[in-house]
Amino acid sequence: MQNRERRENAVLASPLVLFLVAILGFPVILSVIYGFSETSFTTLTSPKFNGLDNFRRVLADQDFWQAVSFSLRFGVICAVAQCVLGLFLAVYLAPLIRRHGWMVAILIIPMIVAPAMMGLMYRLVLHEFAGPIPYYMYALFGWSPSFLNAQNVFTTVVVAETLQWTPFAFLLFLTAYQSIPQDLREAAAVDGTRPWRMFRKIELPLMAPTLFVALFIRFIDGFRVFDNIYTLVGAGPGGATTSMSIYIYEAFLRQGDIGRALAAAILLFGSAFLLLALAQLFMRRAT
């Protein structure tokens, strides 16, 4: 009986598995082949195996390490900023949202905008001669900061990313905060626990797993950032805003160096996989 059920499950799952193999498997296999070959657009059908040469070139490339550094800094800073802000908003606004649930819809509006559109929007909004922010700063103070020069561009893209994705963290924390049993709070209050202590000793520990998941998701999203930065400032002056994804895109399509691009993509995939495994291990131990 069990065998029959297992066979039926396998049969029912097979279309999905075949679909995934066709859609994901083929490009992955091709990427691995090209990653270990000398390939350009002129030799797509006849890649020449060159062992680890592409990986050696990537690892010796100063631009690659600059992109890794940018992605790590961007991912960590954005994840922390979004989670801190999201947590604050969730806790601070929770009583208000309990009475006016529709406010959540307004707060998550930035998440609905496509990241590429967000980049284009900031490109317009921050433009010295066409954007409203510099316009009003000149009108009020006779001066406006340079938002996109080499010194400020990192801060600008971090702020733009944080403004767009804080609502995601907020939503997670709000759900976690609202799911804490009310009895616990009432019991603590009866015992004379003050709000700040209640937050630190009761609510925050109960929200810790959600906090960890949010940090992890936001870090991964920040680390692989591409569209909003690319549409806002491109690779940046001297490659100052080149993330890992932008590095791979430029190597592949702009420089036609397919082997190097895919070697970098494999390294990115490998490191993300390792990170995911470590995160799972950490979570398992924590719970």
Binding site: L126, F129, S146, F147, N149
Partner: peptide
């Protein structure tokens, strides 16, 4: 040239010129 020139291409440069500045 504007301090944000390091992020300027065709459209941004045109916007600067057409502003009269």
């Amino acid at each position: 040239t504007p301090p944000d020139s390091t992020s300027y291409e065709y459209a941004e440069a045109n916007a600067a010129f057409t502003s009269g500045q």
